[in-house]
Amino acid sequence: MPRVARARLPRVRVFLSLGTAALLTVAASSCAQKTTAGTASAASGSASASCGTNAPSLYKPGQLTVATDSPAYAPWFDNNDPSDGKGFESAVAYAVAAQLGFAKDQVKWVVEPFNSSYAPGAKNFDFDINEISITADRAKAVDFSTGYYTANQGIVVLDSSKYANATSLADLKSAKIGVQVATTSYEAVGNVIKPTQQPAVFNGTDDAAHALKNKQVDAIITDLPTAFYISGAQIDGSKVLGQFDYTGKAGDQEQFGLLLKKGSALTPCVDGAIAALKSSGELQKITDQWLSQSVNAPKLS
């Protein structure tokens, strides 16, 4: 706040009684307290304005524009409809929106392909939620929130596969593995499993699942909840063989974050929203509701 110059007043000698001086001192103190309180209130209002429905940095005034890919898969979304509030990431998006002061009807969804989300440049959304792992390379071009989910990798095989009884990652060395392009699952195959064959790369998990179903690959690697969905809903006669950790190039355990444009003024806002959801236990309740089955796969190493 700029300093305001005080008007120069003529010096006047004034004689005060001790009682009058004391009263003026109390009045001055009271005035200072009110000024401090007013400043704090104004600061709070300013912070709220920068994060809420009137935030000047919103993609569109008065609404929170949220992106994800299409199709949007379970268990992250329900029935390819992100707006219904069902599925883990849909529920997280609306919980974050509520923390920021947005009603459900003020949240608008747009489609953003996974591979385009972390490309440099302008964005047509406020944040993207699409199982996007936080990586240093991606963070050069976009902002990430703090993590809202810690992800392990899942392995799906056919029950009839010669790898169906594998008990370690070393048992998959000779397997033909399918994986989605430009994902941390792709990194994990090369850096952890290190198969003797080049992995088959697909544009999406649907394509990878189709290849496994048709026995074009021996196994597919994806994040664990998606692995359970593929096995349970897409491919009869398949199973989740197991899960494994992938710490990434930086040595940190893989986490999903909300993706925002580089330098977005909303980044600290969504960080605060996620922190509040963690502190209240609401994020854990959402996780338990939609992703609880993820604990049932054995750990492979």
Rank of each mutant, 00 (worst) to 15 (best):
Y73P: 02
R8K: 14
A265S: 14
T68A: 11
A22P: 00
S280K: 04
A151H: 00
A265F: 01
V240T: 03
S185G: 14
C31G: 13
G147V: 05
P75L: 06
F125I: 03
A119C: 05
I221F: 04
C269P: 05
N130V: 07
G87V: 12
N54L: 09
E282W: 06
P75I: 09
A182L: 07
E282L: 12
F256W: 11
P268S: 12
S231Q: 02
V111T: 15
K194W: 01
N296F: 08
T222C: 08
L16K: 07
G248A: 00
V4E: 14
L291E: 12
D126K: 01
I286F: 13
S238N: 00
G62R: 03
A200K: 07
T183H: 08
A297E: 05
A273G: 03
P268W: 11
S280D: 02
A219T: 11
Q293A: 14
D69A: 14
I134V: 15
A219R: 02
D252F: 06
A5P: 10
Q216F: 07
Y94C: 02
V14Q: 09
L212Y: 01
K285S: 13
D126A: 02
F144A: 05
A40D: 12
P10W: 04
W290C: 02
G101M: 08
A211S: 10
S279N: 14
D252P: 03
N130D: 15
Q234F: 01
E89Y: 08
Y149W: 14
K140I: 06
A188K: 02
A151L: 04
S264H: 06
I177V: 06
L259W: 02
V12N: 03
V111D: 07
I132H: 08
P75E: 09
A27K: 00
H210L: 13
E187Q: 13
L172W: 01
F228G: 05
L224K: 05
D218F: 12
V66D: 06
L224T: 09
L23F: 10
S145V: 06
A97Y: 06
N296V: 06
Q106E: 14
V189S: 00
A141Y: 13
L291C: 12
S48L: 13
F15Y: 13
V66H: 03
N79G: 02
P268N: 11
V26E: 03
D223R: 10
G85I: 04
L9D: 03
